[in-house]
Amino acid sequence: KKNYNRVEKLIMNLGYEKEEHSKTFIDWKWRQHHEAFFHPEKKIQIEIHWRLHPAPTKEPSFNELWKRKRESKLTGHPVYYLGNEDLFLYLVAHGSRHGWFRLRWLADIDQMIRKDEITNQDKIILKKFQYYHLGKQNELLIGQALILASILLKTPISKDKHTYIGKKSRKLANLAITNIVEIGNTEFDYIKEDMNNAQGNYFC
């Protein structure tokens, strides 16, 4: 976080404005892990992170993440982003922490699975580092994410991932569905029926 002031100045000089923290939540400074900025004309939001997750959540060190980074080819300048396994676990942790109220987090997981971006080698690393992203509830939260992706987005879940699926992860998925319905005011009767009858038949 030592370079944060410099980054903040650069971003605000480009026309971005810092978003205020919620007035209804006491966001203690030691728990903060990012700051959000919004450009009023471009309608673009940028988040500056110095941690992946709020403290005191465990997470891999920066050096570990940097070793597994990927490079985007979309721009003329190198843009680095999380490796496959770290991105997958981050999406699971982030989505579960917020009750999956934004389906785009599941959409990202759906795309990673459909593109087969988690290779056999990645699965080894995934198993090794999932605790550092998700803590003791790692398998339950991964299972919840897989169930939600399968139910809501028809994501094909291969048999090698069935080890994450159990009664507790189904219960967590049910709670998330309720949260999604309440926030979005959406009718998901067919999804609730699928969840009630879920015995793994919607996995491939």
Rank of each mutant, 00 (worst) to 15 (best):
K1S: 04
K1M: 06
N3S: 05
N3F: 01
Y4D: 01
N5Q: 03
N5R: 10
R6L: 15
E8S: 03
K9G: 00
K9T: 09
K9V: 04
L10H: 10
L10Q: 07
M12N: 04
L14Y: 10
E17A: 03
K18R: 15
T24D: 11
F25D: 01
F25G: 00
I26Q: 11
I26G: 02
W30L: 12
Q32L: 14
H34I: 03
A36F: 04
F37R: 08
F38E: 07
P40N: 13
Q45D: 07
W50K: 05
R51A: 08
L52S: 04
H53Q: 03
P54L: 00
A55R: 11
F62W: 10
W66C: 00
W66R: 08
R68C: 02
S72D: 02
G76W: 06
V79S: 03
V79A: 05
L82F: 08
D86I: 03
L91E: 00
L91Q: 05
A93G: 12
W100T: 06
R104T: 01
W105R: 02
L106R: 02
I109G: 00
D110H: 14
M112P: 04
R114K: 15
D122Y: 06
D122P: 02
I124R: 12
I124H: 09
K128D: 15
H133M: 10
H133Q: 12
I142L: 13
G143V: 09
G143S: 08
Q144D: 07
A145G: 11
I147R: 04
I147G: 08
L152M: 13
L153F: 09
K159Y: 12
Y164R: 06
K171R: 02
A173Y: 07
I177M: 12
N179I: 07
I183A: 05
G184H: 11
N185G: 06
T186N: 03
E187R: 12
E187N: 14
F188C: 08
D189Q: 09
I191S: 05
I191V: 15
K192F: 15
D194W: 14
N196E: 15
N196K: 14
N196A: 11
A198R: 11
Q199G: 14
G200R: 03
N201M: 14
Y202C: 04
C204P: 09
